[in-house]
Write a protein that binds this DNA or RNA. Sequence first.
RNA 1: GGCGCGUUCGUCUAGAGGCCUAGGACGGUUGGUUCUCAACCAACAAAUCACCGGUUCGAAUCCGGUACGCGCUACCA
Length: 463
Amino acid sequence: MTPVRTRIAPSPTGLDLHIGNAYTALINYVVAKKHKGQFIIRIEDTDRTRLIEGSEQRIVESLTWLGIPHDEGPDIGGPYAPYRQSERLGMYKKYAEKLVENGHAYYCFCSSDRLEAMRKKQEEGHQPPMYDGLCKRIPHEEAIKRIRAGEKYVMRLNVPDTGTTTFHDLIRGDISFENKLIDDQVILKSDGYPTYHLGVVVDDHEMKISHVIRGEEWISSTPKHILLYQFFGWDVPVYAHLSVLRNPDKSKLSKRKNPVWVGEYRKRGFLKDAMLNYLALMAWSHPSGKELFSVKEMMEVFDLSQIQTTAPVFDQEKLRWMNGEYLRKIQNSEFRIQIYEFFKRKYPIEMIEKVLPLLTERMKTLAEFESLAGFFFERPKEYERPLKVTPLKVGIEALTESEWNHDAMEKAIRDASDKEGVQAKDVFMELRVAITGKTVGPPLLESLEILGKTETLERISNW
RNA sequence: GGCGCGUUCGUCUAGAGGCCUAGGACGGUUGGUUCUCAACCAACAAAUCACCGGUUCGAAUCCGGUACGCGCUACCA
């Protein structure tokens, strides 16, 4: 059996790893590792106009943060290096020329103006916008002459105009396209870079990729890739097109409507295990029906053919719930380090340690620590609402007299409330607002134990 | 417009002809617990399985059509 090798092929054209890419990466990784194979990162940086500085590093970094390690890639190399398409240019040109030799590709000298005019005309005539094949009729010798003379050119795929091209998709079954509707796609651009189509096919073959698992937006261009494999005489890999993640309005997940960068979620205090678990639930479910599971558990039972074909909506709300579940699962010792690092060591770790037990079941993200526990570190600058002085006075008096432990304080407050004829819960609430500035937060008495009598009384002494 | 892919509670999904008066999870509502908020427990609401037709003794499940959504239609990926 041929070894299983999968890959993700991101373009460094975004600020970070897109959540959709993270999803694709997860599935690719799981498939590879389930079969003891390799997972590879290949950077498809052939669009020089859209490159973003630092994008590649952040993509790799985010993947590492998520805990999806790669066996080969631009940063660590591997047996099929380089893993950056911009460093493999010679190869594409060589292969494209081979295609020309066999009549499966041709040189094209059309200007973008002509192409534009052509498309406009086609559109007006309700014709599908496709290259009209003008340069296909240029004799080979003449084309060579023009190139030698320094004329700019691209190479186009010579798609047969009869027949159909079919491929099998592991998730969706057989999919066919009529050749006459497939465009003579540019495969090598005038700047010498390949387009995606040539790039993927050549590299996937060269890198011995066994399974091409990518987003469904590629279904329409897959027949071009199949044709390329056929023209080169290469074996076609296994295809599986994953559903794309969507915004709540069902459009393709986009930064306009959702945070889409992995780093963004990290910054908001999401845990990588929760992210991975949630992503795993997109278009797939654990056979046992459980919702909370690790990547390792997923690997044991995962089967590509069980993936749903419907494009799922990425639901922030459920992710938050799941993150809360994971937060409560992690050990306190690790939790406090996470908080410590998350807030860039802004809060002393000893204090975090003391306070954390009161907060674990109240937090859904690491970031929420601040709004929930900020008062431990800083006196309130403002109050969420005006205070009711009567019950507050009762509370202050009770606390002033009380010994500083939970039971004593509780008894003091309840006794004083009874005596003064006010509701104990009102007293608790006014004390809470006066001391923390907020109406919601961790249990009051436990918090006061940590805060200490001196600090507490100082906060309320002005009333 | 053309081509392609899809369509089960608001959302993620279970479901592979009888086990489905369609199950679970998130979210929602109500109640319990409680010093607030959570957490926890209990309960409830929520899908005429997009629609129409066909196959079958029987269809969410198979077939056909329609509608709707999404994707692609670049010297972007």
